[in-house]
Design a protein around this nucleic acid. Structure first.
Lengths: 184, 184
DNA sequence: ATTTTTATTGTACAGTTGTTCAATAAAAAT
DNA sequence: ATTTTTATTGAACAACTGTACAATAAAAAT
């Protein structure tokens, strides 16, 4: 049983209306009424699918994080000078993904936005690293905890990147990450 | 020139009223009107100092993060079995701090709450590690980026801890962290 | 102690929020 | 093609939001 066509139409209308409004104003400034007017959707219908405007963005952003898993399949050709052998196959693609969807991540990392988006990214990155780490099989290491540690470390670099207005290049970040891993 | 006594009184009333309400319901469920009624403060007065209920919690939480710097001065006596020599003097106190203020951090890490609180913690931990790292003086290492990396790695463990309902002990986490640092 | 400054209060207003319900329209199932 | 199921609509309601402004009260400055 597929999803009702009307639901798909409603959600698409809300998604595009929100993207439109985000060019004018911040996410927290978009009211449900305003969004529904723009999407030509009854406000009551909105509440049948969402609770807040933030949920609409969350649904859209979730699709974006899928790209992380997607691009994980393809070969990575964006690293130039450094020895990539020292990085996990998944980690190396992360900075590129963020760069690709930079306008979205400017929202995801803005301070008034709910933590949900952060967790969507965190859980995704953690999952990728967890798969890479399965081969480790080390004694006394809580693998999930370790993956959480690694995943968030990388996101820490992304936060610093964001706080510096995304002014570093992707390859600089990959280089720095290799350096950090060799420091210990 | 000190702060006006009336302002202090107003803010204290709002702080304690909010803590009261947080025993009954989630932060996102507290309305400004409700909070003001409880605090016996005019709603207009609220808007002279804050924009949202979340700002009141943020102000209170900021005081809590000060404890991280505070306890940094005192000797640490909560580690039992492991060689603490492998951990920075500041890192070793972080898990204990979270544990101490666990009820607050259950809110800070809840998914509907704004990222602001996360950044308050992140910036604090990053600052502490940055001070520890000044002695490094390593070539080609972006020290701020490295501190962001380290700080968020630890917070990654805290997220996993939170997601497992804070069921690990503080010393277990310190032990795991030492293990992680020796893995590389 | 008096004046000046500034925070708080009360009131009001238009718009938003969250919910309910019957009527309608559109899609799915037969 | 017809029936059945389900999503959308529109209207209505009480409560909340954000803002403005004059009146008052409290603190600070003199």
């Amino acid at each position: 049983m597929r999803t009702d066509l009307r639901i798909i139409k409603t959600k698409e209308a809300l998604h595009t209306a929100l993207l439109d409004l985000l060019n004018e104003k911040d996410l927290q400034m978009v009211s449900i009424s305003e969004l529904c007017r723009k999407a030509k959707i009854n406000r009551g219908t909105f509440y049948l699918h969402y609770g807040q405007v933030e949920d609409v963005f969350g649904e859209y952003f979730k699709e974006i994080t899928e790209d992380l898993t997607q691009s994980y399949q393809e070969p990575y050709r964006y690293v130039t000078v450094l020895k990539t052998s020292e990085l996990n196959p998944s980690t190396i693609r992360i900075f590129h993904h963020i760069d690709k969807y930079q306008p979205f991540y400017r929202i995801v990392f803005s301070k008034k936005v709910p933590l949900t988006y952060y967790y969507l990214l965190f859980d995704k990155v953690k999952q990728l690293l967890l798969e890479d780490n399965q081969s480790l099989e080390t004694e006394g290491v809580n693998l999930e905890l370790f993956s959480a540690y690694q995943a968030n470390a990388i996101i820490g670099m992304i936060i610093d990147w964001y706080q510096h207005d995304f002014s570093y290049s992707v390859s600089y970040l990959n280089q720095q990450l290799v350096t950090f891993l060799n420091l210990k």
